[in-house]
Design a protein around this nucleic acid. Structure first.
Length: 594
RNA sequence: UGCCUGAUGGUGUAAUGGUAGCACAGGUGACUUUGACUCACCUAGUCAUGGUUCGAAUCCAUGUCGGGCAGCCA
């Protein structure tokens, strides 16, 4: 599976990249700058990965940059815990791919006042991530945002409104009939300036007043019916502390944050299409001197058998359906990472599904294929038995060992090998034996022969049972002449099974995961908790070949014929002798479906 | 019955007035010391009706169906 380096990797195309290409051709911007702007109110998930890869992908394809920005304008819902998790997840997802495009800012920095074309202008340049830098924060722009609000008031394009939240809603009208003007819409600039300053000073309680854009209460677009710019919230903010009691709303803060950072293409999901005219209205009303950013919208990811609603994911954690946000069954980036899924597989998946405005549902098989493809190429092959049954090779002496050569990864151009020892007593997978075999069963059955992978062909002689009729061991004869390099190595049998030496193996806890939901669209259910798969986790004590005792956190293994496995983040250190914990990332494709 | 937005095999996507292609899924076979991988072949599509054109998935009109929007959330 080697890649010819002379053939350039295909560059994805989509309607947004087409727009970027057009803008570059027209020299509209000196440099392409995108941003990934999560609100720190939850953990990032597979849906965010699509946005991250789109934004960072466009940046890296155009020698541009992508800023990580916390969209933290609502202190009531946000927390520093999420900030740290988001940083870690983004860095992990882009590592080795687009780290060079990742834009941070100097710690504590905010946009500074300069001049462009003789006009005052705020701007904040990016720096690479380091110990002295941090992500961008919308809350770091609160001073500038306040300044811009003053400007809008002076221009007569914003006013302080005393309507209660309930009355504001009533005045807004409905999609099919116009709203009506707020009685405070005609306040003088002086009154507005005075009141807005007093809002900032904390003179009024929550909800008593708001700052609103003066646009058109009869607009067919509801987001243009004098949308709010600022609300009063006497709440401390995780990043700005107690400094502010008025907080800008998303629509007002977002476009200006984009501008302050020199964003050229502001990419978001479809639900913001209706907001775009407002995004443009703010920017255009302010008469800003630099090129303005533009907003483009794409359809968010919907994945089969997966839920990405933050509220519902939180419910899964709170109701102990899963153990944590990074439970390997969760679609969070931290959960996927813990499960052993490589970042490159996630990138491959989300770029492969494309970017459109079509509200689609992607089959989980596409994701699984991306994971298997990546792991097949990179994972080290090992022998491990999940549900062991004892097998005795009666023609081998008690202390006899037969050294076998095993290939580490047959996909490598020059595969390396290791030794595994065959002994008289071994374990095989209980599923690889059937006393009464189904049709076309290639594995071990009464009187049948199979090959022990990397070793030799064995023949089943006797099934030993205890008094209750339970099988305790299988007694076989090993034909050592069928080993690799021996005269009868060419002998063919239909089945090859994996095994480990009973005396030379280690015990490990292995966590076997299955999909969390039993239906393709859990989000469409009245109660998604009712479609939770009760068997999404099975824990077994497995017998693994001894080399696995040295497994490292970043290692990826294929336990042959079973699937791909990785150490859990809570596993004891290798070498301590304590029992290791492996997670099954995904099974191998199985076309012999039962 | 307002505004916005969309519709291509089972699924996701490409083709931007000129051969409807790719991936996943499904099927059949080959290969195989992983029932994996790989390889070959097969199945299957332009929402509908008109129009423009030598030629339409693409442009126009009408219709149908889907999604979004009325937080002082993002």
């Amino acid at each position: 599976m080697s890649v010819d380096p002379t053939i350039p990797a295909p560059v994805p195309t989509d309607f947004i990249r087409d727009i970027v290409a057009t803008d570059i051709a027209a020299s509209r911007y000196p440099k392409i700058v995108t941003r990934f702007p999560p609100e720190p109110n939850g953990y990032l998930h597979i849906g965010h990965a699509k946005s991250i890869c789109l934004n960072f992908g466009i940046a890296r394809e155009n020698l541009g940059q992508c800023n990580l920005r916390m969209d933290d304008t609502n202190p009531a819902k946000e927390d520093i815990e999420y900030v740290d998790a988001i940083i870690a997840d983004v860095k992990w997802l882009v590592a080795g791919w687009a780290d060079h495009c990742l834009g941070f800012k100097p710690k504590g920095a905010t946009a500074t006042l300069g001049a462009v074309n003789g006009q005052p202008d705020y701007y904040l340049a990016p720096v690479p991530p380091s110990i002295s830098s941090e992500p961008f924060f919308a809350s770091d722009y609160f001073d500038q945002l306040y300044d811009y609000a003053i400007t809008l008031i002076r221009k007569g394009q914003a006013y302080v409104c005393d309507l209660s939240p309930e009355d504001t809603e009533k005045y807004r009208g409905a999609p099919d009939h116009p709203g009506k003007d707020s009685p405070f819409r005609t306040r003088t600039v002086a009154d507005n300036l005075n009141l807005f300053e007093r809002m900032k000073a904390g003179e009024f309680p929550n909800g008593a007043r708001s700052l609103r854009a003066k646009i058109d209460m009869a607009s067919p677009n509801i987001w243009l019916r004098d949308p709010l710019l600022y609300r009063i919230r006497h709440t401390a903010h995780h990043h700005t502390g107690a400094k502010w009691c008025i907080y800008p709303l998303y629509d007002y803060a977002h476009c200006l944050s984009d501008y302050l950072e020199g964003i050229t293409h502001s990419i978001c999901t479809l639900e913001f299409v209706d907001h775009r005219p407002f995004y443009d209205w703010i920017l255009e009303s302010l008469g800003l001197p630099r090129a303005l950013p533009h907003q483009y919208e794409f359809a968010k990811l919907n994945l089969g058998y997966t839920l990405v609603s933050k509220r519902k994911l939180l419910q899964l954690v709170n109701e102990k359906v899963v153990n944590s946000w990074d439970d390997p069954r969760m679609p969070t980036l931290s959960g996927l990472r813990r499960r052993g899924i490589p970042a490159s597989a996630i990138r491959q998946f989300v770029t492969g599904i494309g970017v459109t405005k079509f509200d689609s549902l992607t089959e989980i098989a596409v994701f699984e294929n991306a994971v298997r493809q990546e792991l097949n190429a990179t994972a080290q092959r090992r022998l491990g038995v999940l549900k062991p049954i004892k097998l005795v090779l009666s023609n081998l002496a008690d202390d006899e060992t037969v050294e076998c050569t095993a290939t580490n990864n047959p996909q490598d151009e020059n595969p390396t090998v290791r030794s595994v020892m065959l002994t008289r007593e071994i374990f095989i997978e209980s599923e690889d034996f059937a006393e009464v075999p189904p049709p076309k069963y290639f594995r071990l059955k009464p009187g049948g022969e199979v090959r022990l992978k990397y070793a030799c062909i064995i023949k089943l002689d006797e099934i030993v049972k205890d008094a209750s009729g339970t099988i305790t061991e299988l007694r076989c004869t090993a034909d050592l002449t069928t080993r690799s390099g021996q005269p009868n190595s060419d002998k063919k049998v239909k089945g090859t099974i994996h095994w480990v030496s009973a005396s030379r193996c280690i015990d490990a806890e292995v966590r076997l995961y299955d999909r969390l939901f039993n239906v393709a669209e859990p989000a469409a259910q009245d109660d998604f908790l009712k479609v939770v798969n009760p068997n999404s986790l099975e824990v077994v004590t497995a017998k693994l070949e001894p080399s696995l005792a040295n497994a490292k956190a970043d290692d990826r293994f294929q336990f042959e014929r079973l699937g791909y496995f990785a150490l859990d983040k809570d596993s004891p250190e290798a070498g301590t002798g304590a029992r290791l914990i492996f997670n099954r990332t995904i099974t191998l494709r199985d076309t012999w479906a039962k």
